[in-house]
């Protein structure tokens, strides 16, 4: 039906655009390119001091203080099983995300742009994705020259069974 009304769609262009695209915060870990819906991100912070937490699961790098809230800092690469060696002297960026009751700080190497992706281009993840535990991948989106891996934020936050 909509194909019959090409002219009229002009007027509602803006509204349709927001309906059919999703905005993602993007970030890098090594050569991998990740994203998560912008509304799940509370804020982005650089250089929060990490206090190490011995005996914690290996994906927990420590705890950080965000204006009086103490958040668990989760090392993205270790969390999703990525083989990753951080560059010398790296200061991770903190993506503060998740539910507001108990947000987590996701540690990533570099923050990318905020991008809008047509919803139609978002695909279910393949069965295998090089070096990434597929449980943490919700969707993928093929962009020119690279693949955007869209994170399963629930899985990132939950306490894993293993």
């Amino acid at each position: 039906m909509t194909e019959n009304l090409p002219v009229q769609s002009q007027t509602t262009d803006v509204a349709v655009a927001s309906d059919t695209t999703t905005q993602f915060i993007t970030f890098y870990m090594g050569k991998h390119f990740f994203g998560m819906p912008i509304d799940l991100v509370i804020e982005i912070n650089k250089n929060l001091n990490i206090t190490s937490t011995p005996l914690a699961p290996d994906y927990v790098l420590g705890v950080v203080n965000l204006r009086g809230h103490i958040l668990t800092a989760i090392h993205l690469a270790r969390r999703i099983g990525l083989d990753y060696t951080p560059p010398e002297g790296i200061a991770f960026h903190n993506i503060i995300m998740g539910n507001r009751e108990e947000p987590i700080s996701l540690l990533v190497e570099r923050i990318g742009d905020v991008i809008s992706v047509p919803t139609a281009d978002i695909e279910p993840p393949p069965d295998l994705l090089a070096g990434i535990d597929i449980r943490y991948v919700k969707n993928v989106c093929k962009l020119p020259g690279k693949l955007l891996v869209i994170m399963n934020t629930d899985a990132l936050q939950s306490v894993s069974n293993n």
Partner: peptide, 27 residues
């Protein structure tokens, strides 16, 4: 005293977290 996040709650050796004078967290 501040509670531990759920990823750390199972650790029996910690009772919680706190903030030090310099703004860093401590267990």
């Amino acid at each position: 005293v501040k509670p531990l996040g759920r990823h750390l709650k199972h650790l029996r050796c910690y009772a919680g977290t706190t903030l030090m004078g310099d703004g860093r967290a401590a267990l």
